[in-house]
């Protein structure tokens, strides 16, 4: 039995615009099967290069039963051991990847529609990002211990160990002050983002932050930081975003900040 949901999906596909068959399912079939089941050769009388042809099947009948993976010869063929005589793609062709196999099966399960979300190319896995900071691995324990002592948190931005750390204070903003910032020196090159909103940091603290050379984002919303403090940040070559909401940074400070080499975004809502 097909579930009502799948029927709906299939119905959606049938009533959509003229069947284009150019998405991922089509691409997998084209890349792996059409040399033997396409325009030039039609092994077993089967073509797999259009939606209609796939549904038509081979000289022996249908190879896809929409909504029923178990009854679909195509699904069976691609799921066999590559050593099996019936295994597809046959010959020298490498087997489909597990994700390609599950894509084809899911497509059949969903009623083998011509246009569906399956037709959109999958998001390519992002290339490894350029390192934002040195590998945090060797110093993560140190960073955590230090943070614990100071009442702040230092958390990895991601599992990619060169993505850097985020300095967080939201749990206990009143515990974070200038002294705490100074004491983070041993791990400061790992800090890529500093969330210092509502903390007790002042201009003095910015002096410490000015040495955090990998810092990209700094938020000092609702702190006592002034334009004098901003002057300390001039050495930060990578600082991209600076949040000065509800601080006393004035026009002079903003003019200073605009000269920072990498700065792209700055907020000064509710300034003086």
């Amino acid at each position: 039995m097909r579930s009502p949901g799948l029927l709906l999906l299939a119905a959606l596909a049938c009533s959509a615009e003229p069947a284009t068959f150019d998405g991922r399912v089509a691409q997998v079939l084209r890349d792996n099967c059409s040399q033997c089941h396409g325009e030039r050769k039609q092994k077993a009388g089967l073509r797999l290069d259009s939606h209609a042809a796939v549904l038509l099947g081979s000289k022996d009948g249908p190879v896809v039963e929409p909504g029923n993976v178990g009854a679909s010869e195509l699904a069976r063929r691609i799921s066999l051991s590559p050593l099996d005589d019936d295994f597809m793609p046959s010959g020298e062709h490498p087997p489909l990847s597990p994700s390609e196999i599950s894509l084809l099966k899911a497509w059949i399960a969903a009623g083998a529609p011509a246009t569906t979300p399956f037709d959109s190319p999958a998001m390519e896995p992002a290339a490894a990002p350029p390192p934002a900071a040195p590998d945090y691995g060797p110093r993560l324990a140190l960073a955590r211990a230090l943070a614990g002592e100071l009442g702040v948190t230092l958390v990895p931005r991601s599992r990619i160990q060169t993505d850097g750390l985020i300095l967080r204070t939201a749990g206990a903003p009143s515990r974070c002050d200038d002294q705490a910032l100074a004491r983070l020196a041993p791990v400061s090159d790992l800090i890529v983002e500093a969330e210092l909103a509502r903390t007790r940091v002042t201009d003095k603290g910015m002096e410490a932050v000015g040495a955090w050379k990998n810092l990209r984002r700094l938020d000092v919303t609702r702190t006592a930081v002034t334009s004098d403090g901003l002057a300390f940040l001039a050495p930060l070559q990578l600082l991209e975003s600076l949040n000065l909401t509800q601080t006393r940074v004035d026009g002079r400070g903003l003019a200073l900040a605009r000269k920072f080499p990498a700065l792209r975004r700055i907020w000064a809502f509710e300034g003086p």
Binding site: S158, R159, I160
Partner: peptide, 9 residues
Amino acid sequence: PDRRPHFAP
């Protein structure tokens, strides 16, 4: 669980 996202969010 490992609280780190898979990539920078």
